[in-house]
């Protein structure tokens, strides 16, 4: 069974009187251990697709199965648990808490675990910071770090709960090309160590790191 299965997923938004169909029937499978890129221009529906894959939103129709669980009809609380246990997000703007230290930011997902093991979490956070090359920055605040370092913290945060899927939305959008390359190398390294990685991007250079690329246009996968 693949990690993610989307069957004829449609998503409609209501904007005032109008209904806008953003996703028009997506069929998609992501196998465990894959590194895929979903490419598309802005307005193509790739962000909506990411929201659904990341359990931030649910389809209007169709089915979505994540790690053998039917997501389609889950409640808000159940979606939160799924995100916590199965998904690690990496965002374009890093999205770190400005008032928390690097270590506290990395530990954030562990606060919301159903069965938390706080003592173990701190040890694990330090290991992961080591892995992303920031073990000497644990006490720093995000604004004391460079963009590339902040994105590494975000990746460490995405890894802390040992999720099935790393979901990165334009992870290099705010970075210069050299740093972007380093971040993509790091994601590739995670993939080599067994993590499933999905990157949503409009940038071909970023997508090139993936082993498989899907293109989305006007709410449909085109190849």
């Amino acid at each position: 069974m693949p990690l993610c299965v989307l069957e004829d997923v449609k998503k409609t938004y209501r904007i005032g009187e109008d209904e806008v169909e953003v996703l028009k029937g997506i069929n998609l499978q992501v196998e465990r251990g894959e590194f895929i890129a979903i490419m598309g221009p802005s307005g193509s529906g790739k962000t909506t697709l990411m929201n659904i894959i990341g359990c931030l939103d649910i389809p209007s129709s169709g089915r979505y199965i994540l790690a053998d669980k039917e997501v389609t009809h889950l409640s808000d609380d159940e979606l939160s648990v799924l995100r916590n246990e199965h998904i690690g997000f990496v965002f374009q703007n890093f999205y770190l808490l400005p008032y928390a230290t690097v270590l506290e930011n990395v530990l954030l997902p562990t606060l919301y675990m159903e069965h938390s093991k706080n003592g173990l979490a701190r040890k694990r956070a330090r290991e992961i910071l080591e892995l992303v090359g920031l073990s000497d920055r644990a006490k720093f605040k995000p604004n004391q770090l460079s963009g590339g370092q902040q994105q590494r913290v975000a990746i460490a945060r995405a890894l802390i709960n040992n999720p099935d899927l790393i979901l990165a939305d334009e992870p290099t959008g705010q970075l210069d090309s050299k740093t972007a390359g380093e971040i993509m190398d790091l994601l590739a390294k995670m993939n080599e160590q067994g993590k499933t990685v999905a990157v949503i991007t409009h940038d071909a250079g970023t997508a090139a790191y993936a082993r498989k690329t899907l293109r989305i246009r006007d709410g449909l996968i085109v190849d």
Binding site: D77, S80, R83, E85, Y95, L97, L108, L111, Y112, N161
Partner: peptide
């Protein structure tokens, strides 16, 4: 939004 995305529930 960040907290919700890493698994915080409404009640949290």
């Amino acid at each position: 939004g960040i907290r919700r995305s890493v698994g915080a529930k409404r009640s949290d």
